[in-house]
Design a binder for these strands. Sequence first.
DNA 1: GCGGACTGCTTACCT
DNA 2: ACAGGTAAGCAGTCCGCG
Length: 897
Amino acid sequence: MPELQEGRVGLLLSSVYVGDEQTVYLLFYDPQENSLVTWRDRTNHKPYCYTKMEYKGIAEAICNEDKKLSLQLTTKRDLINDQIIEVVKIVAPDPLSIGGTDSSVRERVRSWEADIKYHENYLYDSGLIPGSYYKRNGESIVNEDYGISGTVKEALKHLTLNNNSSNNSSENGNRYGHISSNGYQDHVISWANLLNQPVPELKRVALDIEVESEEGQMPTPREHERRIIAVGLVGTDDFKKILVLGKRNSAEVEKVNMAEAELCLTEKELIEKTFEVISFYPIVLTYNGDDFDLPYLYARSQDPRIDPISHSAIPKEQVPILVKRDSFVKRGTLAEPVHLRNAIHLDLFRTFQNRSIQIYAFGNKYSEYTLNAISQALLGEGKLDLDLDISELPTQKLAEYCLKDADLTFRLTSFGNNLLMKLLIVIARIARSSLDDVSRFGVNQWIRGMLYYEHRKNNLLIPRREELGAKGSSSTIAIIKEKKYRGGLVVEPKLGIHFNVIVVDFASLYPSIIKVYNLSYETVNCPHHDCENDAGQRIAGTTHWICKKNKGLTSQLIGSLRDLRVRYYKQLSKEISISLEERLLYGVVSQAIKVILNASYGVMGAEIFPLYCLPVADATAALGRTTTFSAIEKCKEIGIDVIYGDTDSLFLKGPSPTKVDEITRWARAKHGVDLEIDKTYRYVVFSELKKNYLGVLSDGTVDVKGLTGKKSHTPPFIRNAFSHMLDILSKVNSENDFESAREKIKSILQENAKNLVSRRIPVQDLSFNVMINKSPDKYGKKIAPSTVKSGSIDGTDIIGKDFHKGLPQHIKAARFLVAKGREIKAGGIISYVKTSTAEGVKPVELAKPEEIDTDKYLESMEVTFDQLLASLNFNFKSLVGQPRQSNLDELFWGGSV
DNA sequence: GCGGACTGCTTACCT
DNA sequence: ACAGGTAAGCAGTCCGCG
């Protein structure tokens, strides 16, 4: 790979540690050449970790024994104890000396910062941020300052001014103590400088391979016995190519009628051509390439059988895939960890599995992690349907199928103006993580990167887990047992139909609280007696207190990001005076920040997060409840009727604009948070249930929350009837309209019940569709101690002859399928119907119409529709008769209402 | 032996 | 593999009952 040339600019994408040279290489994207360039570290940076002075003797002993190691004394700020301390820095020539083997330094002395991957360490220490631009200046790398435009600077000045110059101290960005806000301003400016940089179109290619297989058997990289028969490649600039093995089933060369197709006579040729194509691309995309396509390609490239004439494999140095054979290979993984020599590999399967990406970036539009399901949901188009096994497909079909997969994979990154690529780049900036790591890591690691970077930048010692644990535990009792602390406040909804409802909510409530109350691991339960003994520093309803001397690191980072999103990027993404390209970028930035903000509170209460600190999470939730509760009280006081509320939202019944304005101003002044109008409902229907309601917005849009009729597992025929009912309700404008709506709903329900009982509804439409979260054999193994009787001690009996006993219904159905030889994997959807057979359920594909238990379905309809009908003053039974009565024939259609 | 109260498990959803 | 809170369906146990 070429090196970054003098004066040239590159977008930093990744850092890689090269073991042979004991050196880090940076990978840049050259936006002019659309290629990757590298930069070898010239600073002689070395792996290291720290220990404290009391362990200095041990550190010296280790160094005496292992001459490769050396010691340095230096100082760091220890935030846990709020003091500057002397520390011992242990420097090693290679990362494995610090951690990763049984004899590494971190196994022998109590170490700090020894768990950070070396390639991450390097970025933090160099102050280099992936996703941002750098220029080569002689033998060093310098920031390429894009600067921010004059108008943007003005807007930002405004934002920071609004925060600091208010005469009301409660608007000062923090509610405790007298702490300078300069740090906050600096953060805002540097975030904007970073995030406003443009994102170039990234040249990339998607790759998908097809392998011969026996029927029903999925090939695995471990047993790479089967030939690769097709490779699809789809890239930027409309590049499309499908390589097919030409003589698969006979000596005849097969024919493919596609402009993009190229027939290869041997598998070796096929693989070599694949390698040639990807060598032109800086970024390679796959769907599950980490565990399948790349390791499989590698394994076959090393197998002499790919060339039937010379029996020779492809020399390793010509293979662009590297296999890391190291101790990190987890047991049970199918493949060796793999990466590309000259490109960055993004495995979209892992990216789309990320819950934050799924929920916050793509609005929960997909719920299954197959390429087909995700493409259907996001592109409106799925994989090609196959009626044969891959191996049996005619060559033409195989080529079309494989190319389609590569095409979908590519388009998942290109739709919406390259939304996903831009999002990953912007998250890389915030998380200070390489693009490949961002695409594979969860949100906790993104936030970890952001905070670790900040520690290094300010010479702060990153605390060990147990130091954070010593700050105390939660002091509230959760409502759900097995949970660690109490969460959000949910207000009992007022039953019935309410017209003219305004929903207000606190903009980013938890991040606001983290900002306003100065919450951070070092400021909650800080070491100062002065703060601990100050009644004004205590958090109501908890045993925690907050520091008044120092501004918390997390508070500043999250606070500045929150303000930028709420008051700057959200507006800019709608600002028509700037270019469309800029507007779109600001929209992406706003989304990326939202992802980080939404998780920033949660990670504090998550054990996997390295800066896990329960008191912070506990305090945040407690202050959230206080804030919301206080707003409800205030509403009552000024005469606003609060009919419902959940965590950060309040449903107000017919408030005047003046009163809404009053409560908004009050929230800002009293709590320093933004209470905004979120929605205006023409009317809202509440049952007695929390998190369950229907609302019709001013424009007629129907909002349904939590109701069974909309849940994904509900049978399609109920969901369809439910959606018809919503259509009718959306046309209701006033109390009087309900009368005719009732009649229409009545006829829809009667129609459906009639079809059901006369078995005219296709079995397919009767299926419950439930996700299976574990492999089907992992259910039902736990037996309550009291049920263990002599003779059946462990759960294996249950999987014996009566393997359906005690299992959830979808698992019973899944086991029917397993018995039929179908492979059922965790994360898949099981479709089953309720039957009058012994087990009570059957997978849809095995059920006959006459086996359907129609009574059960009438019950399902009843409970589903009564969630709403009860509030509309009628119920299912009154329409459809008594489904549980014996003479079903005499049901409703006699006209009993 | 049967039914209701209760618990635990599982999934889907809300904020 | 960010949090807690709510709902629902099912399968099981416990307990009372002449």
